[in-house]
Amino acid sequence: MAYAERLESAWLDHLVPRSIDAPTVVSTFAGCGGSSLGYSMAGFEERLAVEWNEKQAASFVANFPDVPLHLGDIADLSDADALRLSRLAPGELDVFDGSPPCQGFSLAGGRVFEDKRNQLFLEYVRLLKTFAPKAFVMENVRGMVIGKMRLIFADILRELKATGYQVSARVLIASHYGVPQARPRMIFVGIRNDLAALGVAPSHPQPLFARGVTVREAWHGVINEPEELDVARFGTNRLVHRILYRMSPGEYADKYHPNRQLYGMHRLDFDQVSPTILRNGGAGGVCEACHPSEHRRATIAELKRLGSFPDSFVMRGSFQDRWAAIGNSVPPLFMRAIAAHVRQLLATVEERHVESA
């Protein structure tokens, strides 16, 4: 099945009404809904989402109008309100999901050990204790296991285990799960201790694709609106234009010019998987994801394909807002694979319950 057809098929799975016994999920740091869409594609019913950014939340609401949303700081969501909004009692939730902001861990940033953003996972842990779900999934960047950041990784792992879970953590690559983007991410999977005692250990999905989806395959049939193409062009930035004319597919701008303004500027290659899409590529005069042959940025329609967002997924806000939403998101097809795997783990738990009854 061609990539665009797989995306459309997954979108139709998202639109299917949930069965009364559908597994449940709560999503924190939900952004525009990348993780939420992945869970929905895997048949989950989302009971609550938490997001503080109004611009990203606007996209979330456009696509998930029936999901209760706490719009604001996660620290302001009390335990009682979280349970009330989700219509759940402690222990009833199937999966608790979250991607705490990763800038403090990211290899693209300064990786400051004391960065306050590295502490937001404690709010995730607080609500994990509140819901006491059967399983949890937490996503972050692989930078947390490099250099001194390993100390923070150890703290996170210790804290998660202390809440009563068996935990497995692995770096997974999004392109191995059908996403046309080589996006490495640390994925934590936890199974509650009483369920793990039945012989169901936390684990991760095996790669689904031996070969990644290329940019050419991802963009087959994509439709760009004229006004989007206008926004994607670089305007009057002569330096960017001069360097772009010299760049070949797959090359970075620093090969041709040492100016830090051009740091990270990259021409995509039609016949390769895209590198990780960053949140700030839609702003300023340069961009890490430039078209392979045209002298412009990728459009939002093209970026949605690279991020495994179906064409029908609604993105709100400016060009920069929508780019940031995609750059911040867990690719839906990536999360669908993880969600489907965790759903199977929980199904095995149910089978063990029946066998032991």
Rank of each mutant, 00 (worst) to 15 (best):
V50C: 15
V125W: 01
R183G: 01
A22M: 07
V125S: 03
R150C: 11
F113A: 13
G147C: 06
A201L: 05
R6D: 03
E51Q: 11
M315F: 03
Q272G: 03
V213Y: 00
F44N: 03
V349T: 13
L239D: 15
P100A: 09
G31R: 09
M144P: 00
N259E: 06
G43V: 08
V167F: 01
R316V: 14
A89D: 09
L160C: 04
Q261E: 15
T163H: 02
Y263G: 15
R322C: 13
H14S: 08
P100L: 07
A10C: 03
L229R: 15
E294S: 13
M186S: 01
D66E: 12
A135S: 10
H257L: 12
D230L: 10
G307T: 05
F234W: 12
E350R: 14
A154Y: 05
P275V: 04
P207I: 06
L345D: 12
A30F: 08
S27D: 15
S274Q: 06
W52P: 13
G250M: 07
D230E: 11
T299M: 00
M149G: 08
P68K: 13
A154S: 12
E114S: 14
L69T: 09
W219H: 13
A210F: 05
M144S: 05
K129M: 09
W323K: 06
I20R: 14
G264W: 00
A298H: 04
A154L: 09
G199W: 08
F334I: 05
G104W: 00
L198F: 09
Y245N: 14
R267A: 11
M186C: 02
R87D: 01
F131T: 13
G104K: 06
V354L: 02
K148Q: 15
S175G: 04
F29N: 03
E251F: 08
L128N: 06
D94K: 03
M335Y: 01
Y256C: 12
S168T: 04
F113P: 10
I74C: 12
L128H: 08
I243G: 00
G34N: 07
G98E: 08
H70C: 07
C32N: 06
Y39K: 00
S168F: 00
A196E: 01
V240D: 09
A22L: 11
R185Y: 02
A154E: 10
L151G: 09
M315K: 00
I277Q: 03
M265L: 12
P292N: 01
R185E: 01
R6K: 07
Q166D: 10
S329Y: 03
I300T: 06
V112K: 14
F313E: 05
I223F: 08
S293A: 11
G281Y: 01
F153I: 01
L7S: 06
D76K: 15
F136S: 07
C32V: 08
M149F: 02
P17C: 13
S27R: 07
G72W: 14
T236F: 02
L120D: 05
A325F: 06
P258Y: 05
F44L: 01
D230S: 11
